[in-house]
Design a protein around this nucleic acid. Structure first.
Lengths: 225, 225
DNA sequence: TGTACATCAGTGAACGCGCGTTCACTGATGTAC
DNA sequence: TGTACATCAGTGAACGCGCGTTCACTGATGTAC
């Protein structure tokens, strides 16, 4: 029997619509009419809407996590005994994302936007699924970040990593809108690649800022370390 | 006639539920049963669910924008002819948020979370409403940022401001969850004030990073400026 | 080679449910004369 | 002071709608003997 084309059509339509509108704002009827398949086909092939959401993520995250794993292997091999620097680590991650073969021109935007939504929209099942499936490459990235910032305390590092994730997920999840605004304002065209290239130095500088805590004299609350 | 207590009860319940679950995931029935008022009271007092969402934002943003405006007045008066520095500007914003009188202990978290959601969830009507109502203090903040970073090109500044907003909105919108995780991991307690005090130096460093663009040798794409 | 059965992708129509909103109504309070 | 009316906050029940899911069914293809 020929591999079902319906499955791919559903995944393609769902991916685009989820990226555009979010998960709960996208109905199965929108997806199936965009994909030109029968409404019941989603439940037939995937079982439920939640399972479809997970399948959309799995389709791009599984190859990405392999690519990333190999890229980290390369990096550590190149570095020998000294741990990779923060810039190297961030850049390998960014480059792996940029270099992933994309189904369409907008593929990278969609990928980023979906990751941002996964982080942002409270889909409990999705969070659990991603933690189970992709804890390995994520944990490895965290380990590399730790080795690259030995000067930071665990608490400082924790918060700064959250700030990095926030800036990244947020910017990337609205990258289309932000590019449009910039185009209207200053007449400048921007690629997702360029946004990434601007983001990395921003993150690296923030991560390595010398003052982890701002002094709050008027509140008498914290001390600069 | 006594000022309706029902209105406040609805706003209180809606504020908490929106912050917990997002806008479209919170139904009027959840809100009215938490507030212990009749279902129809929301449409009676506010007209629609969207108008209720806007009223929740107006209740805390209107006093906040006055406070912020006065704080910027003070800052500019203190600085005389030289423009305020980046650190001063960021800190005045942060301090204004922290010092706002709160309806509850969790008030500041809720406030932050709602702002994050406003930015993140695609509620067209809300974006329009906020742009109309609060363009003034927002524009003033942007002007101060511009004067504090004369070394940046308009494009560089644009992207870095997005990165800042992203890190802030994102972290603050998940601040409760992130504090819980840190507590479980390292046994450390954290206040929202402390998160803000950590965020400001991170943002200031990123904003002032010397390299606006990362070199991408393998892609031959961009040049460092 | 022919026949009976199994498997599979896909379909059309309906299911029950929760949603935001509406409507006719009540009862208390204020106002005009 | 008494009466008729207007205004207002709030209510209970229902409305129509879109949602995810289910179910009985079709028709094509593969398999066993």
């Amino acid at each position: 029997m020929a591999q079902s084309e319906t499955v791919d059509r559903i995944l393609d339509a769902a991916e685009e619509l989820f990226a555009e509108r979010g998960f709960s704002e996208t109905s199965l009827r929108m997806i199936t009419s965009k994909a030109k398949v029968n409404l019941a086909a989603v439940n037939y092939h995937f079982g439920s809407k939640n399972a479809l959401i997970q399948a959309v993520f799995a389709r791009f995250l599984t190859p990405f996590s392999s690519t990333l794993d190999r890229a980290f292997d390369d990096l550590e091999a190149r570095c020998g005994d000294t741990p990779p620097t923060l810039n190297q680590t961030l850049w390998v991650l960014t480059e792996s994302a940029i270099r992933m073969p994309q189904r369409s021109e907008r593929g990278l935007s969609i990928f980023m936007r979906l990751l941002g939504l996964a982080y942002t929209q409270s889909q409990g099942h999705l969070r659990k699924f991603l933690e189970q499936q992709y804890s390995n490459p994520f944990g490895r990235f965290m380990r590399l970040l730790k080795e690259a910032t030995p000067q930071l305390s665990a608490v400082d590092r924790y918060w700064r990593i959250q700030f990095m994730l926030g800036a990244t997920a947020f910017t990337m999840s609205s990258s289309d809108a932000l590019r449009d605004i910039l185009h209207n304002k200053l007449g400048v065209e921007t690629t997702v690649q360029e946004i990434a290239a601007r983001l990395v130095p921003f993150l690296a500088a923030g991560m390595q800022a010398s003052d982890p805590l701002m002094v709050v004299p008027s509140l008498g609350k914290t001390a600069s370390g």
